[in-house]
């Protein structure tokens, strides 16, 4: 099944390249809708990523979704994860100005550079229009394409953080 998916990815990637070549990236201002989509995406990423065995203390340890710095989602994120679980684990929202190594985050959204968290089993998500941009070193970077929220996945960063990202998710990745 994985092989099948991968096989389909190559022509997909090629076509994506072609599409991107002729379409310059236009940055639109963040809108409430955009924030809502991103909030949903944050939650949805969980299903396509596998954390290393040591990432959770116990079998029923909660999944920590951390938002660093200014929170662009407000209660949108709370609504998105309300009543949801991550592979059977309850989802715990954490908001701080900054998270360091060992803060126990499994998914971290922030606009700061993410290089400091390299090696930690944390799925770092950033925005392309963040100060660090795509160079911030996040595993996943939100981009806007044709007024739609898409994302780019840095496979190397993911590997560095010992995260296994589903090829299904990989296939949706756009070129940053």
């Amino acid at each position: 099944m994985e092989e099948r998916t991968l096989r389909w990815c190559s022509p997909l990637a090629l076509s994506l390249v072609m599409v991107l070549a002729g379409a310059p990236v236009s940055i639109a201002s963040a809108e409430p809708l955009e924030a809502a989509v991103k909030a949903t995406f944050l939650y949805k990423f969980i299903a396509f990523v596998a954390w290393p065995p040591g990432a959770f203390a116990t079998a029923d340890s909660p999944f920590r979704l951390c938002v660093e710095g200014p929170d662009p989602f407000g209660d949108l994120l709370d609504r998105a994860v309300a009543g949801q679980s991550a592979g059977g684990r309850p989802i715990q929202l954490m908001r701080r100005p900054q998270f360091e190594k060992g803060s126990g985050c499994h998914l971290l959204y922030g606009t700061l550079a993410m290089d400091r968290l390299r090696g930690e089993p944390v799925l770092t998500v950033s925005d392309a229009d963040a100060p660090g941009g795509s160079a911030a070193g996040a595993v996943i970077t939100f981009v806007l394409q044709e007024d739609r929220v898409r994302f780019a996945i840095d496979a190397a960063a993911a590997q560095g953080n010992r995260l296994a990202i589903s090829s299904k998710l990989m296939s949706l990745s756009v070129r940053p």
């Binding site: 099944m1 099948r4 998916t5 389909w8 022509p11 997909l12 076509s15 599409v19 989509v37 995406f41 949805k44 299903a47 396509f48 739609r148 898409r150 994302f151 589903s166 299904k168 998710l169 296939s171 949706l172």
Partner: peptide, 25 residues
């Protein structure tokens, strides 16, 4: 089923072009 599994991400992330490409394959 393979197609359904493959399209979970595209559906989840509302990625019509990718879903379309899966189908075009």
């Amino acid at each position: 089923r393979i197609l359904a599994i493959t399209t979970t991400a595209a559906l989840s992330f509302n990625d019509r072009p990718t879903a379309g490409e899966y189908l075009t394959a």
